[in-house]
Design a protein around this nucleic acid. Structure first.
Lengths: 205, 205
DNA sequence: CGTTGTATTGAACGGAAGTTCAATACGAGA
DNA sequence: TCTCGTATTGAACTTCCGTTCAATACAACG
């Protein structure tokens, strides 16, 4: 005895939202069609009807997650900072705090990284996302390099942007496994130390 | 009709080795007792007999992997380098190349990171391993800071070691997902640029 | 109001996994 | 040689999952 009919796009979104809830709570490998159906108050058959297959459901969820994740936001307050280094640091700080403020989303992203290791379709989606993320760091990195061309003679904007991305992803790992010990400020202090040039003379007198 | 009897510790190792093979090839979530039993030429029941449960088998495998992974090796050639910064960079280079030279082991480690997100027992084991890894970076970091106390006034050895670990783990993520694009030298060049101080004057004439 | 297409249900099927267990054969000690 | 403990087997049980499909009811259209 079928239930109320709903226009197709809304149903897809409803099921996708339920999938997100289940996956965020239980992880990708516990995200079964039966659980999703239950979470969406819908029959298992309907999930298959709209997504064909479990695999495609999870791919659709990945698309949804990537589409609704703000890649990198450089807000006006950051853009107003005088030195390029400060701007980069400010962006790094913001990205690192996101790790602790959106744990569910990050955990789910993690699951997809893991799945991407063995699944080519997922891996490709992640690669383009990684590239976007790296590209969003590029202008910031380029400004930093331009400010001190002598010091950074061998460093390319790509390289510095890649370094920043690696750092963020590494922090993501640490914050997932070792949340209590992970401290944004410790990391940033060290990063600032590395990026900041030596003062001509000690001004702390 | 039982087969040959084997002293207990050898059987455990044999099954563990088979588990490693299966997990390295198919991933943790495809590592089933049946597959492990087949790979070890042994009955499924025997696997349970020795490890009680699938979960405990995977925990034992994690212990095995961690125990047989060299934490961090600072070989004599590195120790002989004159500057602390060069030593740290050399170690970072070695760790990064390990990512591409031991892909199977790294992939498996990756699986456990992900599993640790939702499994407390796995997470605890990883936390102590992370701590060991960080600790092995500490002396190197401390030397770097001691060499330039003015510049690194606000940086603690812990902080710099943590930064190095985050960087390595981030590189691991990138090399897993984006192996073709990941380039050790790019990353290192950028890192060297950050860590190297400005030369008093251009000596390239 | 009748027809038609389709969204929806829920039962059913096949497969695979983890675990249990009675039966069995090997090895060591008496 | 006999006995006993235990390592080992493999079939059986349970559970759950993905997927299929015939039946069904709703909505739109004529």
């Amino acid at each position: 005895m079928p239930g109320k009919r709903v226009p197709e796009p809304e149903r897809r979104e409803q099921i996708l939202a339920a999938t997100y809830d289940v996956a965020a709570e239980h992880g990708l490998w516990e995200t079964t069609i039966l659980r999703v159906a239950a979470a969406a108050n819908v029959s298992p058959g309907l999930v298959i009807f709209h997504f064909e297959t479990r695999r495609q459901l999870l791919l659709a969820l990945l698309d949804h997650v990537l589409a609704t994740t703000t890649v990198l936001l450089v807000d006006p307050a950051v853009a107003a900072l005088p030195s390029p280094t400060e701007r980069l640091i400010a962006v790094l700080r913001r990205e690192m705090s996101r790790l602790t403020s959106e744990p569910l989303r990050i955990r789910l992203t993690f699951d997809y990284w893991m799945a991407g290791v063995r699944d080519a379709a997922i891996r490709e989606k992640l690669q383009t996302e990684f590239a976007r993320y790296r590209a969003s760091f590029r202008p910031l990195a380029a400004e930093v390099l331009r400010a001190e061309p002598d010091r950074f003679a061998d460093v390319t904007p790509e390289g510095l942007a890649g370094l920043a991305v690696s750092l963020i992803k590494g922090c993501a790992v640490q914050s997932m496994i070792d949340a209590e010990r992970f401290d944004v400020d410790d990391h940033l202090a060290a990063a600032v130390g590395l990026m900041t040039n030596v003062r001509p003379a000690s001004t702390t007198v």
